[in-house]
């Protein structure tokens, strides 16, 4: 499209300007927090994927599996596993919500809020289901 040169004028005259406060003052709606957590859980699972690929190599090589098992079964390993599973379910649920948005569903403001609110609970439900499944 065409290139529109900026209207000159006001901006050139002012001697001094400052940036107005943004992240510091904005009261982020729930959607924005869910979006931020979607990003954080996604970044965490980039590491998780690295770990999973490493474990697969351990299984393929047939060496070091007992050590990996011990690490996963240790108290810290268990805590990390549960958090990772929760993060994965969170990213899954939030991602599902985004896919629905992409198809044009769920945009009316009340639905948006209910959907945002549901994400952490769906993630909790998924984690709980998995927990009971594994016994």
């Amino acid at each position: 499209m065409n290139d529109h040169s900026p209207p000159e004028g006001m901006s050139a005259q002012s001697p001094r300007r400052v940036l107005s406060p943004h992240l510091q003052v904005y009261r982020l709606p729930l959607n924005a927090w869910i979006s931020l957590l979607h990003r954080i859980t996604g970044l965490l699972w980039c590491l998780g994927l690295l770990g999973a690929t490493g474990l697969l190599w351990v299984v393929a090589a047939g060496q070091g599996w007992p050590a990996a098992q011990a690490a996963l079964g240790s108290p810290w390993g268990r805590v990390a596993s549960i958090l990772a599973i929760y993060a994965l379910w969170f990213h899954w649920a939030s991602g599902l919500r985004h896919l629905l948005f992409d198809f044009g569903f769920g945009f009316a403001a009340p639905v948006v809020r209910v959907g945002a609110w549901a994400v952490p609970w769906v993630a909790l439900l998924g984690t709980g289901l998995l927990w009971s499944w594994m016994g």
Binding site: A68, G73, G77, I85, L88, W92, G95, W133
Partner: peptide
């Protein structure tokens, strides 16, 4: 991944 991730979690969740 929407399908594969739950499948994997339920299949290999107890792999440890």
């Amino acid at each position: 991944l929407l399908v594969l991730v739950p499948w994997l979690m339920f299949s290999l969740g107890s792999a440890g």
